Simulated scan of single mutants.
Amino acid sequence: MDLVVFLVVVVVAVALVFDFTNGFHDTANAVATSVSTRALTPRAAVTLAAVMNLVGAMLGTGVAETIGSGIITPPSGAHGLGVVLAGLLGAIAWNLVTWRLGLPSSSSHALIGGLMGAGIASATEVHWDVIGWIVAVPMVASPLVGFLLAAGAMIGVLWWARDAPYRRATRRFRLAQTVSASAMALGHGLQDAQKTMGVIVLAIVAGGLHEGSTIPLWVKLSAAVALALGTYVGGWRIMRTLGRRVVDLDPPRGFVAESVAAAVLYVAALGFHAPVSTTHTITAAITGVGAGRGLGAVRWGVARSIVVAWVLTAPAAGLIAAGGYLVLSPVLP
């Protein structure tokens, strides 16, 4: 087998491993609130999330095209494939570290940071203008918007349901959470599976097996299935952090957090083709519904630890990727 073709196969396989780790790392994004409020059992929740991830992954390609052509432009051949491979390894390594610690960091930031780190280390062209306006700005704005909308929506819901019997209202919101959890899982598939699709296209273009940024059907299907399988396996450590440690959630707050986060993901993916972080968005929304009750309802120490992980994610994944490239480069033609 030709070396370039072999490397393409390796990079595609590693990209799907990243997609799988993204799935089990980010299961909590879609179902932590529903599980913690007992709207869904854990197994029913991850099954629902896996199915909706699969569906969401097939609904668009805008984010995939941004990742596939907007972050870096690696050179053709084995050298370029080594750059992409190093970026993926950096992202996977950081995902595993934060999963082990139970911190809901961003797989999206890890992937973009990994590609940037490998690109800088290899003197590959990095598209800083795209990273600034299409990646960085939406990634910073999405959690802020999620927090503010969730806090405002929570205040509105509490006012609207102020005279309703608590048990009846709770029961109805618990049923509604099945819909909001489905919407959140659909948004996760729409965002995160596309990021892997973009990396695979980046690899097959570098390998001379594809032209342009269009996403072949086999790429869509493989990324969708890998993400769904990872989601089904489930990331229980992070689920506990999001579902219990940041705020005490009940069904109304869980419904509002999921609904707001899903809306932000849809607007980012379909309106702007922006690869935002599902983890940041849902965590910010959960914090927002807690703040809607009062600032004392949020465990700010836990929230601070999560923010630290967010800040470290892109540079840490980038450093790991840069180190990976320096290890790989001597054996690349």
Rank of each mutant, 00 (worst) to 15 (best):
I120W: 06
P42C: 10
G243Y: 04
A224I: 08
R244L: 13
D163A: 12
A169L: 13
G198Q: 07
R171Q: 14
V10W: 00
A291R: 00
M1H: 11
L7H: 04
L221P: 11
A206M: 01
T124F: 09
G80F: 07
P330S: 00
A123T: 14
V14I: 03
S277K: 08
P275L: 12
G208F: 01
V219P: 14
T283H: 02
V4N: 14
A64C: 09
V17H: 03
M197H: 01
V267S: 00
W236E: 10
V97L: 11
M139H: 12
K220R: 15
G146V: 04
G23R: 09
R162N: 12
V5T: 15
G62S: 15
N22E: 08
G114A: 03
F272N: 07
L54D: 07
V327L: 10
T66E: 07
G113Y: 04
H210F: 04
G62F: 14
F6E: 13
T47S: 14
I282S: 03
V51C: 10
E125I: 14
A263T: 00
V55E: 09
V126Y: 12
V46M: 08
G146P: 00
S180W: 01
L40H: 05
L295K: 10
D248S: 14
A78P: 06
M52Q: 11
A161T: 15
V4Y: 05
A153L: 05
A28R: 02
V225D: 09
P252D: 13
A203T: 00
G292N: 00
V199M: 04
S122H: 07
L148I: 11
I155L: 14
V205N: 03
I204D: 05
A193S: 15
I71M: 09
V17F: 06
Q194F: 09
P104C: 00
V10S: 05
M58D: 11
A28C: 02
L249D: 10
